[in-house]
Design a protein around this nucleic acid. Structure first.
Lengths: 234, 234
DNA sequence: TTTCCTGTTTGATCGATGTCAAAGGCTTTC
DNA sequence: GAAAGCCTTTGACATCGATCAAACAGGAAA
């Protein structure tokens, strides 16, 4: 049990690679010079080790975040303490930005899945910026729209597809090529992928083994697909 | 099978009750005079009978909508043709507004669940208005944020709670009082509630009957709750 | 009020996934 | 390179919810 903390472990000088990720993140891409500078100035970069609690459900929401490297798990608990992931955020993803005009309380827990670098924005500052700079408002709208669509996709997938189908869909999205053989390296642990797809780790494992007949071979984080096209028929 | 149509069945003169709902909708509430007038001018009111297809997944997205009366089901199909509801929109709810800065294609199907009146907004016009009027941008951000939170709740509920728990949660949200006995009248058919909670109608029925032990009595659309507090323990 | 239609409930069954436990295999660290 | 630790896989089992079919009930229309 780690105690909830608002501040990150250590602040770092802004790394050029971090800055590049931040500027290219969907949230900031398309910002003009003036607006971009304002947002960059409002950001503070920090890093956290794996399993660090970024915030907990119920805490006063003072910041929203953009992942620069690593992964963050957004999840909620039921009464018995079982966790369910709501979203997995990777490099370029923004989270808790939906609280910018809402209650001032986090609605879920956020925990790093591995060594992670985050950009942190003060929510009140961002709100003011969004009201001053139309470009920032536009970026926010665009970002929120995209999240909403993604999350609706998630609901539909959960309700419509079985475990192997969800895995196949993930692989197809991650596939660089469109037909023939392909190879993918998972960017994170399988247990994280399981949570992303709304599955227990055991169920993900079984889904993979049921995909063997569709030409999917798994060895560690490397996934070989003998024929991408046949994955679509799962 | 109804053919997909972009236009509603018949345009009506703006009813005063419809207008009242529109102005009070979360999307427009908080708009100042100027911005409000612009948005109202951009709206066109129309009505449709039950089971009317408002739009289909894959169609070019030209409008987004606000429900003034009745209910609209947003859903997607799997390969076998089974439907899964993603969201149920009631009076005051906005849908497809998430396409304002995205692809120009609807990502799900929309069908009226009963006699329904809708306000329709041209997406391009709304986009321009959002860029001209900061208040409209703010309203959009607020509306999208709220939808995103609601949809994330939906994912968490699906993954964390059983059918009876989801029904209990719905009843608690719908409850006017906070403890003691209460009575609720469902505003729509049970099959719609089932879809909303991600259940087959039979599963909803069984969930209700399993809630009898928690003091829930169902007769038609009327639901009696002997003790609201005990519903929380489900 | 009566009838018909549609929505709802109930029963039986099946498939899918969560849970627990133990064995196996990567990865990392020394 | 070797060992330890954690992640992952596999098996067995229980549970939940979907599906199909048929009985039932409620609501709308005559």
């Amino acid at each position: 049990m780690e105690k909830p903390t608002v501040t990150m472990n250590k602040s770092l000088r802004v790394n050029s690679r971090d800055k590049a990720v931040l500027v290219r993140a969907p949230f900031m891409a398309g910002l003009s010079g003036e607006a971009l500078v304002k947002m960059l100035n409002a950001a503070s970069i920090s890093s956290a080790p794996a399993r660090h609690i970024v915030f907990r459900e119920g805490m006063t929401a003072e910041h929203f975040y953009c992942v620069l490297s690593g992964y963050v798990r957004l999840y909620r608990l039921n009464r018995e303490g079982r966790e369910a992931d709501i979203r997995i955020c990777g490099p370029g993803d923004t989270f808790a930005e939906c609280l910018i005009y809402g209650d001032d309380i986090y609605r879920f827990n956020a925990q790093t899945a591995e060594n992670t670098t985050l950009a942190r924005f003060d929510i009140r500052t961002a709100r003011h910026l969004a009201e001053q700079e139309p470009d920032i408002a536009r970026a926010l709208i665009s970002c929120l729209s995209h999240h909403l669509l993604t999350t609706m996709d998630c609901v539909a997938n959960d309700r419509l597809h079985t475990a192997p189908q969800r895995v196949a869909e993930y692989l197809l999205k991650a596939c660089p090529v469109d037909g023939g053989p392909a190879s993918i390296r998972l960017p994170f642990q399988k247990s994280l992928l399981a949570g992303m797809l709304g599955l227990a780790p055991e169920a993900l494992s079984r889904a993979f083994s049921s995909l063997r007949r569709a030409g999917v071979t798994v060895r560690g984080r490397i996934i070989q697909i003998s024929d991408v096209k046949s994955l679509r028929d799962v």
